[in-house]
Structure formats: structure tokens, C-alpha cells
């Protein structure tokens, strides 16, 4: 069934779900929703499985025309979403009608918003996932005139509960991103490690779903920046010869030949996804135990929210 016609594709809008883990050994990154918390909550709000395919909206200008009566939800960064020019309430299920126009007008907070529709977007699957991965020829960003299809929810009702509004992430950029040092921290001078952990880095405009390039003080290597190429884990921070770190993210190449000073912890990746080019960030060293505890808390928080939305809160 037809959900929307794309009137304006916006800066960069893609269909994403939880990605395609399992193909990294063939050179295919897992891709998927960048801010997983926001994306999965959007799906829960309209009664979808948390990993249903949705739209990841970057910045603004996306404009959609509803081709059916739909139930939608918008979460994530506040990009001033509107329905027919009225503000669209975020973080809740919202019925809209055929002919309504949904638009994202200006960035207020965060960088990426998530729009889901009850039933979930359909669209082509590649290797078991609908996540668009442009370099791998798996889909393209939205283009004007595209018709977005969705699965018929077949009269399914929306969940009874509510999203506890105090749980809306602040998308604050004040707190440092926590990192686990390594695997090649011994390839940096103590001064280099100190620079990395104490200075502020600005996200360059050459940043995308592959990675965030950072601008700031160069990090001093001990013996060059090259290693024999090795697999890269999500959130790894490589430092090429110029000393400027690059955080490798959702659509990054699977393998790389630069030394890696640290890796952003999983619990902080959603927050990173909402930092936009031009903004600044800092790093703070964490232990594995702290990282694992933080991740456990994230999972428990999500479970609590899931119960609240489903109405057993």
C-alpha cells in the first residue's frame, strides 16, 4: 500500500532498519538506524516491531504527501516537524489523513529524526535488510517523486500506553563521549593520548554515515600511522598521518590500515548519531566494566520504556 509521495527528499533521507549484521567478512558493513534508541521507540509507538523499516531524516527540507490515512510517529532530533504547517507532536503515535503534508522545517536539536508508519515501510530488501547502503548499491536516498510503500497494518490498534516524556533524550553535546582506549594506543605518545582525551574536536562537514571526521589538535603518533589492514569495529577512532581522528560508524568500510587510538562505547553511539557537523565533542576514557554497565543500563531503560508504551508500565 502507498504511504507517501516524496515532494522534497530533504538533505539526506534513507530507509533504515536494524541493518544486516553477518556480512562484514564479505566487506559489507551492518549499516542500520544510527540512533537506535530513537528509531526503535518510534516503531514501538505505532505498534511495530522495534526494528521495522523507517525513515532516517537528516537535518531538514524533507516533505511528504500522505497517500492514505496513516498512523505515524516521529522521534529523534527535533527538526521542527509539521503536519500541514502545524507543529507535529513528537514521541507519540499520530493519526494523519490522506492528503496531509508532513515536513521537516528547521533543526532545533539533534541531527537525525525518525519517521515511522504503522505497519512499517516495505521497499526492497538487500541481504535480509532494507537499510540503504549507497556505496554497496543497496538502495538510494529518497528522491523527489518516490512513492513510499508500507505494509497494511490490517486494523491493528495502536499501543495503549505512552512514552514517558521525561525519557526524551536531551541530545546534549556537553557530556564527553566515553571511549575504550586501543587497540593500538601504544602507537601514540603519552602527549598524543593526552591531546586526544583533553582537547575539543569539531565534527567536520565531511562527515556522513560512514564516519565523522574531526578537526582540532593533531594527535602525536610514535611510529607512523600505518598498520597492516585489520577489521574495524563500530565506533573505532582511527588516526591517519595528519593526526586528526576519524570515528568510523554505521556504513564504514569493514577494514582499514590506520592505527586506532580508541573506540566509542556502544552506549554512547546513539548520542554521537545526534551530533551534527560543526558541533564539538570531547572524549573521556572508560573501562570495559563501565562500558558494559552503561550498555546494560541502556537495555534495561529500553525495556522499561517498551513496557510503558505497551501499557503495562
Amino acid at each position: 500500500m502507498r504511504a507517501f509521495e516524496v515532494l522534497n527528499p530533504g538533505v539526506f533521507t534513507t530507509i533504515q532498519d536494524l541493518g544486516r549484521p553477518g556480512y562484514m567478512k564479505y566487506g559489507i558493513p551492518a549499516s542500520g538506524i544510527a540512533d537506535r534508541f530513537s528509531g526503535q521507540v518510534a516503531n514501538l509507538l505505532v505498534g511495530n516491531p522495534p526494528g521495522a523499516a523507517l525513515l532516517e531524516v537528516t537535518l531538514f527540507r524533507l516533505e511528504l504527501l500522505a497517500l492514505n490515512d496513516l498512523v505515524i510517529a516521529v522521534t529523534g532530533g527535533n527538526l521542527s516537524p509539521t503536519v500541514n504547517r502545524d507543529p507535529l507532536p513528537m514521541w507519540q503515535a499520530l493519526p494523519i489523513q490522506k492528503g496531509d503534508r508532513v515536513a521537516f522545517r528547521a533543526r532545533k536539536k539533534g541531527f537525525r529524526a525518525y519517521l515511522t508508519v504503522q505497519g512499517g515501510f516495505s521497499g526492497q530488501e538487500f541481504l535480509g535488510s532494507r537499510s540503504v547502503f549507497v556505496r554497496g548499491l543497496m538502495g538510494t536516498p529518497l528522491q523527489a517523486g518516490n512513492i513510499l510503500e508500507f505494509e497494511d497494518p490490517e486494523g491493528k490498534s495502536i499501543p495503549q500506553g505512552n512514552f514517558p516524556q521525561e525519557m526524551i533524550p536531551s541530545f546534549s553535546i556537553l557530556n564527553p563521549l566515553r571511549v575504550i582506549l586501543g587497540p593500538q594506543e601504544e602507537r601514540f605518545s603519552p602527549k598524543g593520548i593526552e591531546t586526544f582525551l583533553t582537547s575539543e574536536y569539531r565534527v567536520s562537514s565531511q562527515s556522513d554515515r560512514m564516519g565523522y571526521r574531526l578537526e582540532g589538535l593533531a594527535i602525536e603518533h610514535l611510529q607512523g600511522a600505518d598498520i597492516i589492514s585489520e577489521p574495524i569495529s563500530r565506533g573505532a577512532i582511527q588516526v591517519p598521518g595528519d593526526g586528526l581522528p576519524i570515528i568510523l560508524l554505521w556504513d564504514a568500510q569493514v577494514s582499514g590500515g590506520y592505527v586506532k587510538i580508541a573506540n566509542v562505547i556502544t552506549a554512547d553511539l546513539d548520542r554521537l548519531a545526534q551530533i551534527m557537523p560543526g558541533q564539538s565533542l570531547r572524549f573521556q576514557s572508560a573501562t570495559l566494566e563501565e562500558a558494559h554497565l552503561a550498555w546494560r543500563m541502556e537495555i534495561l531503560r529500553f525495556e522499561r520504556i517498551k513496557r510503558a508504551i505497551e501499557g503495562h508500565g
Binding site: P21, K25, I228, W295
Partner: peptide, 22 residues
């Protein structure tokens, strides 16, 4: 234990920290 990604002289292994410690 999750994905296993071999390279020239290294192997990366993903794991679920909810089930396993380092």
C-alpha cells in the same frame, strides 16, 4: 559470540556483553 571477521594477520570477534564479559 557474534560475527567473526578475518583479515591478514588479525581476527575481529564481536560479542554480546549482555551475555559475556571480555
Amino acid at each position: 559470540i557474534g560475527e567473526l571477521i578475518p583479515s591478514y594477520c588479525t581476527l575481529l570477534i564481536y560479542y554480546d556483553p549482555f551475555l559475556l564479559s571480555f
